[in-house]
Write a protein that binds this DNA or RNA. Sequence first.
DNA 1: TGGTGTGAATGCCTTCACAGCG
DNA 2: CGCTGTGAAGGCATTCACACCA
Lengths: 226, 226
Amino acid sequence: MSGRSKRKSTEPASAKSVPQAVVSRLSYYLRELQHLLRQGVQTISSSQLGQRLGFTDAQVRKDLAYFGQFGYPGIGYRCQELAEAIRRILGTDQQWAVALVGVGHLGQALLGYKGFTQQGFVFHAAFDVNPRVIGKQIEGIPIYSLDRLPEVIRSHKIRLGIIAVPASAAQGVADRLVEAGIQGILNFAPVTITVPPQVSLVGVDLAMELEQLSFSVLHRQQDAGK
Amino acid sequence: MSGRSKRKSTEPASAKSVPQAVVSRLSYYLRELQHLLRQGVQTISSSQLGQRLGFTDAQVRKDLAYFGQFGYPGIGYRCQELAEAIRRILGTDQQWAVALVGVGHLGQALLGYKGFTQQGFVFHAAFDVNPRVIGKQIEGIPIYSLDRLPEVIRSHKIRLGIIAVPASAAQGVADRLVEAGIQGILNFAPVTITVPPQVSLVGVDLAMELEQLSFSVLHRQQDAGK
DNA sequence: TGGTGTGAATGCCTTCACAGCG
DNA sequence: CGCTGTGAAGGCATTCACACCA
């Protein structure tokens, strides 16, 4: 597959440290490309793509140039091809086994969130301390006691963990996930947690997002949008 | 109250355009200060605060200096005082009436999320198109038909809206919110929406956060954490 | 002594501008 | 001709380093 001529492809990956902001925009490019593809759009120029997302054309080209040469002079980018390339870069061309810890309201919503599956993130297990949910299934995902975390993570070869427990329990859960060999953690608990350097960490604090919004409203510093 | 001597306070607000990154860190400072206060900590230095969050001491001081002079040489910052100042800056010293649009799994989880209330964000209404939920209450919040959105938004003086509907409906909902006079929108739909410049916009895409994590795992570019 | 506030220096990211190619 | 890829320039943001203060 993908015997596309000899253009510099995704392979060289990142040698000269890619700015975090670029990676973030990569996700935006991918999302927009997937939209465009659904609408049957075949190719798009950097200026068109940028315009839809609020970026400059130069920004789009520079960002993509970090990872290879994907464009065609005079044409732009082939949507299908570029989307696949970005998926390879982000890692969503493969499936990721995910575990959820904390089956409260938020946790349950996450278990049922379709957007994850569409991008290749598949829940294999959920954990909680509440005996009323342990042993049940939600959205087809089995819920285990927190005690069985190491065992289940290892046997299912789960690589990513999502923390949706109260703030006070978050660091403890993170420690267990790390010990079980998890590679990355998405933390929804409103607290700073620390993990060893070989584990990746992304945090989302819902209240903080609203704070950013209220600040933006108060100071009307146009376009807090990401 | 707050007759604190004559140190330059929050008032001058932002004159020389505050970088977005600074505002984001402000939320982290506030969250950490609230933790510290619960533990009874009275004062903290920029280096201590920074260390807990992974920032340098100079960064902490520069950030705060955008908004006034809050520190005491030789002492550091008084946690209570600084927390209050940041709340004033972010706007969470006041209450914000919030509306939710889209009462699916995620929407329901958001209605029950305690973290919002703690920071002064209060749901006054929710909207959906599903007749099975219209007229009911969830977590004490009344659910209205989407048709009644303008009326309810106006009568309750709701300033912020949260969008938790499918991607295909998001822009339409945003348009209605804008027309109803909303001041800021937090968008959870995985799509780029556009609003007029006088309306603030913050977007959260849950799948994107996982993409950032998988990228970080694959390229092990230490510390994707925010 | 311990720690802030801040100009100056550094370094990084974005934008410009243009050669080159289909 | 249209649009990419990219060196060079420019603009921000972060870090340094130090005067000053309690």
